[in-house]
């Protein structure tokens, strides 16, 4: 099941929890557990959570279009290797 998840990520692009859960035919709750496990094993890392504080010199400093609570994950190098 985890290999299947990595396989879906190998296709690249941004994917939502809902889309991944649908393709794996599991619930989002189980998917979340799998993501947390893959992070613990070093295959994924959490990258979401905003960019506040980096945007000096701009009127919109502190704005983060994708910061509103949703977590974002990316493959680590190890994850990318395993996925391919």
């Amino acid at each position: 099941m985890l290999f299947e998840l990595l396989d879906l990520l190998r296709q690249g692009g941004a994917q939502t929890y809902a889309a991944l859960a649908r393709q794996l035919d599991i619930s989002e709750a189980l998917l979340e557990g799998m993501l947390a496990d893959l992070e613990r094993m070093g295959y994924l890392r959490q990258v979401g959570g905003g960019c506040a504080g980096h945007c000096h010199g701009c009127t919109m400093a502190g704005t983060c279009a994708i910061g509103a609570g949703g977590r974002i994950w990316a493959l680590t190098e190890k994850g990318a290797r395993a996925a391919s």
Partner: peptide
């Protein structure tokens, strides 16, 4: 390939 998984906040 570059992939992201996004949790959509409620």
């Amino acid at each position: 390939q570059v992939a992201f998984i996004m949790e959509m906040p409620l």
